[in-house]
């Protein structure tokens, strides 16, 4: 029954109209809990589209983090494990070591990957684990209500930097993607975004390449997505995307930081 309803929703029967876009089957038919305008839902959809188009749904295992995307396993129609906060890349490491012919990815936010999980991130990449790490950087802790993240910009107001992040108290924003790009174990490090349709297309290419590299056993692929947090930033989605371009990109410029030799 559920299957029938799902089929109907995937292929709506609208007379005389051509279906030009539909939800990938790999993205489960569940209502996102994400706030309106949040980049997570777009990245989820693109990631699942890529997995479906590569026809690797049956051979993929994902690892969800703690943070806003803690519910990723409710949306992603592949086998999933929910990791402890910060440990997704350690969990993914073990899954890949046990199942080397499966495609393994972790999906982590900035608090998860670049604060509490920094050691796991660095060492997973340094070992060159043959997995994909998707890193969503929106410069704030969304799930817990908008606290400072390691990637929070100087001067940026959060609930724990109410007058703006200062060097003296909060230190520098952590450019962990630049750190990771220095490690010989990584194959591919890129920074993408989802604030425009073209950016989404570029992200899709980056994710597709990452799975191709994983198939070729090239080493760790690390895809940062500079994203937004309209709720945490206290902006409309449109304002947030404009703010992202103006303020995030100068510190976190999009583009490839490392490509396979």
């Amino acid at each position: 029954m559920a299957q029938e309803i799902m089929e109907e929703m995937i292929t709506p029967d609208v007379e005389g109209m051509e279906c030009v876009y539909q939800r990938p089957e790999t993205l489960l038919d569940a209502r996102f809990h994400y706030c309106p305008g949040c980049g997570h839902s777009v990245v989820h959809r693109v990631l699942m589209e890529v997995i479906q188009e590569l026809a690797i749904t049956e051979k993929t295992v994902g690892v969800a983090p703690v943070g806003c995307s803690v519910f990723a396993d409710r949306y992603m129609g592949v086998d999933m494990q929910g990791a402890a906060h910060g440990r997704a890349s350690a969990v993914a490491t073990a899954v890949k070591r046990i199942l080397p012919d499966r495609y393994v990815f972790s999906y982590q936010g900035d608090g998860d990957l670049a604060a509490i999980g920094t050691a796991e991130t660095i060492h997973t990449c340094n070992r060159g684990e043959n997995i994909l790490i998707v890193f969503i950087n929106n410069a704030i802790y969304g799930m817990t209500g908008g606290q400072m993240a390691p990637t929070t910009l100087l001067g940026m107001k959060t609930s724990t930097t109410p007058t703006g992040r200062t060097l003296e108290i909060g230190g520098h924003p952590l450019k962990i993607t630049e750190l990771v790009a220095q490690l010989p174990g990584v194959a591919y490090v890129t920074r993408q975004s989802v604030h425009t349709p073209n950016a989404v297309r570029q992200l899709k290419k980056a994710l597709t390449k990452s799975f191709q590299y994983q198939k070729e056993v090239r080493g760790t692929c690390f895809v940062e997505v500079v994203s937004n947090c309209p709720s945490g930033w206290k902006m409309t989605p449109l304002q947030a995307n404009a703010w992202l371009v103006e303020n995030m990109f100068p510190l976190y410029p999009p583009g490839d930081l490392r490509t396979p030799q």
Partner: peptide, 26 residues
Amino acid sequence: MIVLQAESEVASINMVYGAAGAGARV
């Protein structure tokens, strides 16, 4: 046997989680 010297006990136990979840005797 797959034997990995991890970066910490924290990583080790979470690797055990991942491997056990993937069906391995670990």
